[in-house]
């Protein structure tokens, strides 16, 4: 916890400054609520926020899993078969230029107001960083290691299993860490456009009622949830790649 001390103090100083400014200049609550008012909103709406959060987290995790499965499949195919990579890599990049906010309403037309379109939005947002990082990880494997296994008489699939895939895991987890922080946001965007449950619904309702302190409360919850998911991915990263976090006692 000690290493976050400096970051935490910056946040606390900013919050105090914010509180002071709002009070001194008597800024109305519907323009900018003070941090204490946001905390109060969090306290009052705790049960409501919890229910909405569960919905959003479920959509985020489901979409994230979908993105991992699809990303793994496509990246491994691209890593194994050069022609697949040549064909699909540019398409992958182009797909990323399509704005999600434009696609989301169409998804609602196709799949209705249920959870499906939200999960798909999350998957679309998360898919790109996961796939690209794994493809790059597979491509950047040490060629001398590949050569070593070739000389030992290894088959291509053995080289993939023993060298390429484990070697690309650090890049893969880097991609997972980026995309997991997008996942909650993706679900919220999906909910904005039409839903009956979720933090996106809570956000739009609060906004329309000019309850800005509740909007801020939702922002806080979204940030905390994103951090928790990030911590979850970090935990799995340490669990699956203990070797990656090992420091050499001999250096220096």
């Amino acid at each position: 916890m000690r290493r976050y001390l400096s970051s935490a103090s910056v946040v606390i100083i900013l919050l105090i400054l914010w509180e002071v400014i709002v009070r001194v200049f008597a800024v109305p609550k519907y323009i900018l609520p003070a941090p204490t008012q946001v905390i109060k909103a969090l306290y009052i709406d705790y049960n409501l926020l919890f229910g909405h959060s569960m919905q959003t987290v479920f959509e985020a995790l489901a979409g994230f899993m979908l993105a991992i499965l699809a990303g793994l499949a496509l990246a491994v195919l691209m890593g194994l078969i050069p022609s697949v990579k040549k064909t699909f890599y540019p398409l992958l990049v182009i797909s990323q230029t399509i704005p999600i906010v434009a696609v989301a309403p169409i998804l609602i037309i196709w799949f209705g107001y249920g959870m499906m379109p939200k999960i798909i939005v999350v998957a679309l947002v998360c898919f790109f960083p996961i796939t690209v990082s794994l493809v790059e990880g597979l491509a950047s494997v040490d060629q001398d290691m590949v050569k070593l296994l070739l000389v030992m008489g290894a088959k291509p699939w053995q080289i993939f299993k023993i060298v390429q895939f484990p070697g690309s895991l650090p890049a893969f987890f880097a991609g997972l860490k980026i995309s997991v922080t997008y996942s909650i946001m993706g679900a919220v965007i999906g909910e904005w456009l039409g839903a009956s449950q979720g933090l996106g619904v809570y956000l739009t309702r609060s906004m329309h009622s000019f309850l800005i302190e509740k909007v801020f409360a939702a922002i806080v919850v979204i940030a905390v949830l994103s951090l928790l998911l990030f911590a979850l991915v970090s935990f799995f990263s340490r669990l699956i790649m203990p070797w990656y976090y090992q420091k050499s006692p001999w250096q220096g």
Binding site: M145, K147, L148, M152, G153, L169, W243, Y244
Partner: peptide, 18 residues
């Protein structure tokens, strides 16, 4: 033909995940 000899380079090429 590969697989007849063992090869070792200046780089140790130990697999870090093993």
């Amino acid at each position: 033909q590969k697989g007849h000899v063992s090869y070792m380079l200046q780089k140790d090429l130990l697999l870090p995940w093993r």
